[in-house]
Structure formats: structure tokens, C-alpha cells
Design a binder for these strands. Structure first.
Lengths: 214, 214
DNA sequence: TAGATTGTTAATCGATTAACAATC
DNA sequence: TAGATTGTTAATCGATTAACAATC
């Protein structure tokens, strides 16, 4: 399909392009040049053109890019029209927040099940879904065949659960647990989100600019 | 202070080193070579040595690195013993989750205040703190001088609030709003966390490996 | 046609990897 | 001393930037 594998930095910029283009569209703008988009996004015009050209020519010489068209194309690349089945494991504070805070559908995903081992949560409805006990997980996966699992569980439980989910056909993990999930199978996708690391990076930067001043 | 500015990729790896070293310490391990650490973390030994040597020699030839010592040094670099004052704005699902889910103290931060514009939340206690109304923000900042603000607020409110907070002395933003905060002042640190972008990246990868197979 | 701006190739820059002398 | 492993320099790789011909 793709002529050449797309590099990670490019992939990570795609959602951001998509977001900015959505904002421009909402502002009723019709066209934009790589130069202007670059200014707004804090990138270089060259980089933007290079990025887009990984996927073929989206623009028109002398004119620039049509915003709606470009947004739609990037949306298709990102798969926003897919309906990837997603389950969420761990409906604590963070799990609930992820389930309710994010519009999965806008991103080509459908949250179809929420599970927690805590009995007190069973039957509670979050994000339109009833929290289910863990022992229902296997049957549920057989029936609905979700492809992605969101892990909002404690560190200690992550690896074991991931192995279990792999056996149930899960091919992608969005991992919020305080543990680096590593699976030695290139067909399994893992996206580790380490909020703690992000906070520490911020703290480091605060701290290091301070020193610079002295 | 620092001989040379540390590059972003290195900085972003530091919390991860810190985390892994903590795990090794918990396993009672005493020493480790760059080679073994590389295997465990999925990096190269060269890279690890290069990274550590940005900050000076932490190891000993023929022996490797002392785990506790190395962890402590990286901790100090990251400032885990600092007590940076942090306030959180927006105590919805995500705000509450961030406040309760993360141990700020372990990371050199102290969560000192939570604010929300929703009246129903005023007086509610989360993470040991009473949620306060927005009109108390200015006085609070004058009194406690927090340096970092966590923004868990809707997209539309972000830029305006950020400007207000800047005026109140905030120097760092941990931004969870669906909006790219950009502040044209190099002394102000912004860490944007875009959970939606992360999910889309995962979705893209799922989607693209699928095609590869065909 | 002239002006604008892309798509694309070449040059540069920076980060990662390899190699090896220093040294515990 | 011999073996191991670092610290550090040099080589490689990949990503970003610059340049410019193609073309709308």
C-alpha cells in the first residue's frame, strides 16, 4: 500500500495537523499555504510539505492547500471513519476520565465495554456503558471482538492482563498503567502514556531554565 | 551550570530511566551494566552511556553503574526533591483523575490548590484539597505563589486562562485541554498532553499494519 | 504572462550507533 | 594481570531545512 514506511515523527504530527485544520475549517477558512500553516503551528513550511508528500500531493502549485479537502484526506489516513472496537479495563478515576473525556468516535474508535475488578463498580454506568466484572471479559471479547484495550489499571496487574488480552484477540494497547508494556510482536501496537513522565519532564524544564538564569 | 544544553530526546528519556532504576532497586539489584539496562529498556548500550554522560560520569569502568546511586543522581537532575507548587484548574473527570491518580510529591511537585468554575463542585474535597471557586484564584496565587498550573479545562477557555495565570506568576503549564497552548516566552514552559492525539496515533498504527499484511 | 506556491531533490543538522582507548 | 565495562571520539543514519524547477 504505502510506497515507503512513514516515519514515527511524521505519524505523530498527523493528529496535530488534523486538529489545526479542523480549527481553520471552523474559522471558515478555505485555503492555506504551507507557509502560513507553518507559522500557526510553529513548524517549518518545508517540513509540512515533506510530511504531506509522504502520502502524495495534497496541494496545488500557486494556490496552496484546500483546508477541508486536506483535513478529510488526513482524516482518512488516520482512519477517523473506521470503527475500531475498544474496551477499557479499570474504571477508577483515570479510567472513568478517559472514557468520558474523550470522543472515541471522532477518532475512528468505538468504546464498547468497560471492565473493573472492583465489585462496587459493577453495574455502574459510565460513558453510556455498564461497568462489567472481569470474569465477563473473555465471553465479551469472543462476542464483540474488540481490537484495542485501554489499560487504566495498577502497575502490577498490567503485564498479566496484557497477556490475557492478547489471547483474546486484542491487537493494540493504550496503556496508562505506570508500567512500560513491551510485547515482542511487531503486529501488536502499544501506545504507552506515562503521565508521570510528562510531569517530570515539565518539572525538569522549570528547574533547568531557573539555573540558566543564574 | 550545565556545560551544554541537554537535548529534548535525552530529557524525555530521563523519567523512564528513573522509573526502570526504581524497579531494579525494588528487585534488590545492586549494579547494572549499560548493556543489560539497554536490553531491559529496549535501547542501545551506547545511547545509555551517551545519555548519562551528558551529566557527567555516573559509572565505573569494569563494573557498570550502581543502581541506587544512579537513580538518586537522575532523581536529583529531575528535581524529585524539589517542592514546586502546583495548582489544578478544572476539577471535572479528567482533573480529578490527574489530581488523585498521580503522586505529585514523588515527582518534586506539591499540589496546593484546585479550582473550578462549576459551583456545584465548590467545597468538594479531592486529593485532600477543597475545590475552590475561580474568583479565589488571584488571591490564592498571591499568597502561595504556585509555579505550575495544570489545565484540565475546555478548549475555549485555555488561552484566556493561561494569560491570566501568567500574570499571576505561573511559569509552567501542564496542559490537558484540547488546544495547543503556545506562549512566546522561552522562560515559560508548556507541556501539552493531547490524549486524543495519542489515541489517533495508536489507531493509525493498528490500521497501517493491517494494510501491510495485504 | 507573472506571481505564487507546491513537490522534490540536495544540503545540513542532530541524534544514534559503533569503535576503542582509558581504567577499574 | 586479565576481563569487563565505562567515557568519549568518530562514523553513520535519519530527520529537518534549504533550494529550486515544475506548474497552477
Amino acid at each position: 500500500m504505502a510506497k515507503q514506511a512513514i516515519s514515527t515523527p511524521v505519524i505523530r504530527r498527523l493528529p496535530r495537523y488534523y486538529r489545526f485544520l479542523g480549527e481553520l475549517e471552523a474559522e471558515q477558512m478555505e485555503r492555506i499555504s504551507s507557509k502560513e500553516l507553518a507559522q500557526r503551528m510553529g513548524l517549518s513550511a518545508s517540513q509540512i510539505r515533506q510530511d504531506f508528500n509522504c502520502f502524495g500531493g495534497f496541494g496545488q502549485q500557486g494556490y496552496g492547500y484546500n483546508i477541508s479537502e486536506l483535513r478529510e484526506k488526513i482524516g482518512n489516513i488516520l482512519g477517523v471513519n473506521e470503527k475500531t472496537g475498544v474496551i477499557l479495563i479499570g474504571a477508577g478515576n483515570l479510567g472513568k476520565a478517559v472514557a468520558t473525556h474523550l470522543d472515541f468516535r471522532k477518532r475512528g474508535c468505538r468504546l464498547v465495554g468497560i471492565f473493573d475488578r472492583n465489585e462496587e463498580l459493577h453495574g455502574v454506568v459510565t460513558a453510556g456503558l455498564t461497568i462489567q466484572p472481569m470474569h465477563r471479559l473473555a465471553d465479551f471479547c469472543r462476542q464483540y471482538q474488540p481490537e484495542v484495550a485501554v489499560l487504566c489499571i495498577p502497575k502490577g496487574a498490567a503485564q498479566e492482563l496484557a497477556d490475557q488480552l492478547l489471547a483474546l484477540g486484542i491487537r493494540g494497547f493504550w496503556n496508562f498503567s505506570h508500567f512500560d508494556l513491551r510485547i515482542n510482536n511487531p503486529h501488536i501496537i502499544v501506545e504507552n502514556v506515562h503521565l508521570g513522565d510528562s510531569l517530570m519532564t515539565l518539572a525538569y524544564c522549570m528547574h533547568s531554565t531557573e539555573k540558566e538564569k543564574k
